[in-house]
Simulated assay, not measured.
Amino acid sequence: MTNQILSKNMRFRLVFSLYLNYIIHGFGLIILAQNMTTLSDYWSTSLKMVSFVISGIGIGRLLAYLITGYLSDKLSRKFFVYLGMACYLFFAIGIVSTKSIIFAYFCAILAGIANSALDAGTYTTLVELNDGNGQATVLIKAFVSVGEFILPLLIAAIHGANLWFGWSFISMVVLLILNAILLIPLKFPQPYQNEKNTQEKIEQRQQSNLGRIIATGALVLYGYTSMALMIWFTQWITLFGEKVAGFNTTQAHLLLSLYSVGSILGVLCLYIFLNRNISEGPILIIMNILATLALGIILLSHTPLLSHIASLLFGFSAAGGIMQTGLTVFMKLYPTRRGFVTGIFYFFGAIASFTEPLISGALSDISIQVALGGDFFVGLIGICLVTVINFASRQAFEM
């Protein structure tokens, strides 16, 4: 089956279901953290143990990304989308039906596997729906943000109505079941056979291409830095505002809220740029420079207005889809191994999510300013990497 056979109606329904999964994924990313106190009481344990359970998500990602990415090129993309949904379904039901920390940790690992399986099946599908172009993958970040925006409001409403906390998890279950039903009749695209043969010949001719080798190494490292740049900021920015800049509680928390608003605006702008066939390389360079500049302003200004503007700019540039754009470049280098490179790229992102708290935590022993300042250093490395990616990938594509 080729992409041409997919009707506009089927394409729309497929894209809708794929994006709906990432609203659910937005729930899954924060649902344990948003229910920490309640889960602590429910499991009769400490907040520290609940935090330990949450760390299982990162372990699940590390265990699964390389495997799901590799196998998604061998098996059906649809299978991995369903696998991700099934793991999230088991996670949501399991968390509210157990009082065992060990079983809860296993469920959290499943959530990490769900993340990797969804990525392996979805990013590749969206690229193949658009004949190798990756602008549709950028919007994934926006739908994740929508999920992260809705869930806290839902939990607040449940708490305000004195309802069982588990209804927030049940909402995930209901959405997953409905979406699974919607996906049953839908067929996923396959790359054009003639395009596949052409791309295999291109890859064979590029085996000794130095530019391709350098771009690959830089992209793998960028999978780490692009993830670290975001999570480093979100972990420390509020504390920095309160403890270092001397902001009041509202001003300090507004920094993170503006970051979230900026990320959604960034996704929309990046989607427009890529839809107009603007090259990914220059976009990556500009966005990484803006993100690092914004961090520098926050670290040095210590004034609410400048810091709030800079936080909005940082969200726009660092969390507006530049990680997904980097993955698009990676998939263009390896068009017949899209699932595998997705797995590699996000595997290094998972390493970042696991190691960043350890690194920044150690830096915080010196000071909160040094802890956040480490993110500035990551930004500088990111600028170097995307500059290398831009020039090396151009060389790789020259035949």
Rank of each mutant, 00 (worst) to 15 (best):
residue 233 F to D: 04
residue 256 L to V: 05
residue 1 M to S: 14
residue 265 L to H: 09
residue 228 A to Y: 04
residue 156 A to G: 05
residue 18 L to Y: 08
residue 162 N to M: 12
residue 55 S to G: 09
residue 283 I to L: 15
residue 215 A to T: 00
residue 233 F to T: 13
residue 23 I to Y: 04
residue 172 M to W: 03
residue 342 T to K: 09
residue 16 F to M: 14
residue 276 R to G: 15
residue 58 G to K: 03
residue 326 G to A: 04
residue 137 T to S: 11
residue 89 L to Y: 08
residue 280 E to A: 11
residue 221 L to A: 04
residue 388 V to P: 13
residue 236 W to K: 13
residue 77 R to G: 10
residue 373 G to L: 02
residue 223 G to W: 03
residue 386 V to D: 02
residue 122 T to H: 07
residue 336 T to H: 01
residue 151 L to G: 01
residue 341 V to W: 04
residue 329 V to R: 00
residue 42 Y to T: 11
residue 249 T to E: 04
residue 51 S to K: 08
residue 161 A to S: 12
residue 57 I to P: 01
residue 85 M to R: 03
residue 87 C to I: 05
residue 7 S to L: 00
residue 120 A to S: 14
residue 146 V to E: 01
residue 45 T to V: 01
residue 186 L to N: 07
residue 88 Y to E: 12
residue 118 L to P: 05
residue 380 L to S: 02
residue 372 L to M: 08
residue 337 R to N: 13
residue 395 Q to C: 09
residue 360 S to N: 02
residue 77 R to N: 12
residue 60 G to M: 03
residue 360 S to K: 01
residue 33 A to I: 07
residue 253 H to I: 11
residue 52 F to E: 10
residue 241 G to T: 06
residue 79 F to M: 14
residue 132 G to H: 06
residue 152 P to Q: 05
residue 333 L to Q: 11
residue 342 T to V: 02
residue 172 M to V: 10
residue 285 I to R: 07
residue 192 Y to N: 10
residue 116 S to D: 06
residue 73 D to W: 01
residue 39 L to G: 00
residue 98 T to W: 11
residue 220 V to C: 08
residue 133 N to E: 11
residue 277 N to Q: 15
residue 96 V to C: 06
residue 289 I to L: 11
residue 173 V to A: 10
residue 208 S to E: 13
residue 233 F to Y: 15
residue 386 V to L: 01
residue 67 I to A: 06
residue 40 S to E: 13
residue 312 L to H: 04
residue 230 M to H: 07
residue 375 D to R: 01
residue 350 A to Y: 06
residue 42 Y to D: 07
residue 393 S to F: 05
residue 224 Y to I: 12
residue 76 S to Q: 07
residue 290 L to V: 15
residue 30 I to D: 03
residue 383 I to G: 09
residue 215 A to D: 03
residue 116 S to F: 02
residue 109 I to G: 08
residue 80 F to S: 05
residue 49 M to R: 09
residue 215 A to M: 06
residue 297 I to Q: 09
residue 341 V to N: 02
residue 351 I to G: 02
residue 350 A to V: 11
residue 193 Q to S: 09
